[in-house]
C-alpha cells in the first residue's frame, strides 16, 4: 500500500511486527481494486461467510487468536492519518481516496467481526474460557447480572435452567451472609421469552 502510493515519505510504524505488517499489506493489496463487502450486523452466524464476508476475507482471519489480536492492534497502531495523508499528498484521485478509507475500515471491521464470531454461540463460561477472562463477580453479583441478562433467545428451557441455578445460588448465598440479597430474583419468572 505504501509502495503503491509512490511516496518516499517515511511513516512511523511503532510496535508492529514485520509478519503482521505484511499481512495487513496483503489485505490492502487484495482489496486494491474491489472494496470489501459490508458485514451484516449483528452477525447472524458464527460463520462469517454467511454474514456477507468473502471467502478470501474469511480465510484471511482464519488465524490463531493471538495473531488476530496483533492484527487488530497493528491497524490501530499504524498512524492511519499520516498514512492517508501521504497517499493524498501523492496525488491519489478523489475516487481512490474514498477507496483507501473503505479498505482501512474494512480491515478493522473484518478482524473485529472475527472476534465477535468467537463470542457468538457460546455461553458465558465458554466465553471466559475462550478469552481467558477471570470471573470477578461475587456470587451475589453474578446471580443478579444473570437475572438481568436472562437469555431472550426464545429458549424457555434454558431460561428455566438458569432460574433454577439462581435458586441454588440463593441457598448458598443466604447461608454465607444473612442479608437477603436475592429478594427480587425470580420476580420475572413468568416474563416473555422471545
Amino acid at each position: 500500500m505504501v509502495d503503491d502510493s509512490g511516496t518516499d515519505e517515511e511513516i512511523p510504524l511503532p510496535n508492529v511486527k514485520t509478519a503482521i505488517l505484511s499481512k495487513v499489506i496483503d489485505y490492502c493489496k487484495y482489496h486494491k481494486d474491489s472494496p470489501p463487502e459490508e458485514i451484516q450486523k449483528p452477525l447472524k452466524s458464527t460463520n462469517l461467510v454467511e454474514c456477507g464476508v468473502s471467502e478470501w476475507d474469511n480465510e484471511y482471519v482464519n488465524i490463531e487468536q493471538e495473531v488476530l489480536f496483533e492484527l487488530i492492534l497493528a491497524a490501530n497502531y499504524l498512524d492511519i492519518k499520516s498514512l492517508l495523508d501521504a497517499w493524498w499528498d501523492s496525488g491519489v484521485e478523489d475516487g481512490k481516496r474514498i477507496h483507501v478509507v473503505l479498505v482501512w475500515e474494512g480491515n478493522k471491521d473484518l478482524t473485529c467481526a472475527k472476534v465477535a464470531s468467537m463470542i457468538k454461540g457460546k455461553n458465558t463460561e465458554e466465553i471466559r474460557k475462550q478469552f481467558n477472562i477471570v470471573n470477578d463477580f461475587t456470587p451475589e453479583e453474578e446471580a443478579q447480572v444473570r437475572e438481568e441478562n436472562r437469555d431472550l433467545g426464545g429458549l424457555c428451557v434454558a431460561l428455566r435452567s438458569i432460574s433454577s441455578r439462581t435458586e441454588q445460588l440463593e441457598v448458598k448465598v443466604t447461608t454465607k451472609s444473612k442479608a437477603p440479597v436475592l429478594d427480587t430474583v425470580g420476580m420475572q419468572g413468568t416474563g416473555p421469552c422471545g
Partner: peptide, 17 residues
C-alpha cells in the same frame, strides 16, 4: 466488537466480568 453481537450473545457477554 460488541456492536456486532445479537441480543442473546450480548446478554451472555454481559455476565463475563
Amino acid at each position: 466488537i460488541l456492536s456486532m453481537l445479537d441480543v442473546k450473545s450480548l446478554a451472555r457477554m454481559s455476565c463475563v466480568s
